[in-house]
Amino acid sequence: MYKTNYHRASSVEEAASLIAGADDGKLLAGGQTLIPTMKQRLAAPSDVVDLRHIADLKGISVAGSQVTIGAGTTHADVANSAEIRSACPALADLASHIGDPHVRNMGTIGGSIANNDPAADYPAAMVALGATIHTNSREISADDFFVGMFETALNDGEIITAVSFNAPEKAAYQKFPNPASRYAMTGVFVAKGAGGVRVGVTGAGSDGVFRATDMEAALGANFSGGALDATSVDSSGMLSDLHGSSDYRANLVKVMARRAVEAAG
């Protein structure tokens, strides 16, 4: 790891001012991606601003169908939250399969979506749930937030404070993990809500998370696994690597989508 300066913020405002004052600073949420990246010397921030001790960033609230999750809430806390398990069990289930137990004790929802790893799980859920990303300066819809691989609509120094969404009528997430890394090689989040059916796909697309609009249309008309038979997934937009060719990933998108629909009931 290259040299860096550590700062611990106790409020969002303090974090914003620390990051603004840094040469080439990075926000440190759970650190489960940033620290490995720094260890590999693939990132060399001059400063890291630790958000883990900001109480305002943590916590889950459910008011009616409106679910709000603080950006600093760990995967373990989302997975174990009775409110989330009741309002959107699919999201709790997703959180309970991110990384491993030790990662889930540190990693946060804000950190995950800010990083927008093309194989991360949360982006699929955010897109499928039509979530809103709240920052210290604005609100951004998930559709606008995820721009491309490791790219988001966040400005330099902008801090995610929370995500919110309306609890879906039914939803499920199905992940096919990469055998080695256990990141999603394909993860499909299907949600049926007031606004219709949305399908978020992670791990597979060569440009990061995307919505499978053909599937959404088919499921909007008939929310059943069989409705997907008529859809096709174009392999040309899929990632291809040692573990999965684009054809294989295209197949997985369809299989995981069908299983998600069946799991959603």
Binding site: R8, G31, R52, N105
Partner: peptide
């Protein structure tokens, strides 16, 4: 009280 990977946490974070 929670299991974490000590290779993925700065000592300063644990202060």
């Amino acid at each position: 009280g929670e299991a974490v990977k000590s290779c993925t946490m700065l000592a300063a974070q644990a202060a």
